[in-house]
Design a binder for these strands. Structure first.
Lengths: 235, 235
DNA sequence: CGTTAAATTGAGATCTTTCAACTACGGTGG
DNA sequence: CCACCGTAGTTGAAAGATCTCAATTTAACG
């Protein structure tokens, strides 16, 4: 049961309307004038979810897209043989569910990995703004392109080369900031579904990295030896 | 050196202007009125390329997007270690190079696999139409979404499971029509770059499929035993 | 403290890569 | 016309990586 709050409900403690949204420079409405935003504020909800919570399921018909404000979530596709494959990781500023604009149904299942906050945007709002404000086109195209870049990354970074290189690339990718060493580890199962390897190999490689001091873990936190991992990520 | 012809040059033998374009229902301008098309016809060239010809290279700055009219081409990314990975196969109706609308440079190298005919569309035309005709937005979004679906397919179909399953899925995917058995084989090298396996394994598996009568090849042509391949594609 | 899920480890089977050799084939030039 | 050459495809054998299945340890949590 997500914690629910209307962005524009002044009685809500946070009163996080889109004009003051902390990730506004990341999200869809970057280039809209405040007046335009006010017209659209009403139906946009901010929601927070616990880890493992699904936002929507593949095939489901829906009427919302989601921008990630904080946390981490995965887009999953189920294969004919029943196993599942993670096709994308979404972080703050990313958008999920835009395919609703084109088809009627979601193409993936979206599931929170960490505690995650999102803005839930009715598709009608996007369509309305899209018809009136060309600035949103560019923003939408940019989101679509970002999704494509991320999909390409899953192919070239996470589905290419031996398992050790894939895990190394994943750890580097998970770092909170490009230069920083800290990152949150995924479960071995998520690693396996993202890297196309088994849970056991993922576990063996992570354990090996720990022994070789390439990573130092404390609970879910992880400190990376960036240069060391980069060497392994090469191949 | 591509064979070059202005779509709207009435002296050109084919006189394949966009209004009568044989793949018009597939390409970008499906929903535009003829009057709108006329305004944009001038700068759109139709080009044909021989196999192996590059349309553009990753990182290159460019001003054109391409719709595929016939043939087959690949989008390739080069990895840090020098090897290359095919991240998408494009067939008639698909679009290449739309990222130019968002960034200034191409994100992949586009290379023809078979003899390929394309329409080369200046980005300025897309921007102009995008600003004036909402119908093009929807079409653009649909193309972007199609690219995403194709990227997802490369992940789930071509980068998941053992090599035999990947090859089987590729052969099924390459069939000209969903129900038909005929398809054009890729070179073992392209298979390897697309499936994330070595040339030798690709060769071994194709040879094995031939021996087991799962495919029958004649030159580059190939007849698939669809149910047989589907069984292997399961996993 | 007991219960359950997640992570780890071992050992053998299986798959894939690597490296090298060999074949088939289409041009090219003598 | 034919010998030669280069490329793509094929095959073999051994090494290496990954998977599978089972057992064990660790962590999480009521």
């Amino acid at each position: 049961m997500p914690n629910r709050a209307k962005c524009n409900d002044i009685t809500w403690q946070g009163h996080a309307d889109c004009r003051h949204c902390s990730v506004r420079h990341l999200v869809l409405f970057v280039n809209l004038a405040d007046a335009d935003l006010d017209r659209t504020l009403a139906p946009i909800d901010e929601l927070t979810y616990a880890p493992q919570t699904p936002l929507y399921r593949a095939g489901e018909r829906g009427a919302h897209a989601y921008t990630v404000r904080s946390g981490l979530l995965k887009l999953v596709q189920y294969l004919p043989n029943g196993t599942q494959r993670i096709v994308r990781l979404l972080r703050p500023g990313d958008v999920a569910g835009l395919e609703i604009l084109v088809r009627g149904a979601y193409h993936h299942s979206a599931v929170c990995i960490e505690a995650t906050a999102v803005c839930r945007i009715p598709i009608a709002v996007l369509k309305d703004l899209d018809a009136r404000k060309p600035a949103l086109h560019r923003e939408l195209m940019a989101r679509w392109q970002r999704s494509l870049d991320q999909a390409d990354n899953v192919i070239t970074l996470f589905s290419t080369g031996n398992s050790q290189a894939r895990v190394a690339r994943l750890l580097l990718h998970l770092r909170h900031l490009p230069g920083e060493a800290a990152c949150n580890l995924l479960s071995r199962e998520d690693m396996s579904a993202l890297l196309g390897i088994t849970v056991e190999t993922a576990s063996r490689i992570v354990a090996d990295f720990k022994r070789r001091n390439l990573i130092r873990t404390d609970n879910g936190q992880c400190e990376c030896d960036t240069p060391g991992l980069q060497a392994l990520a090469q191949d």
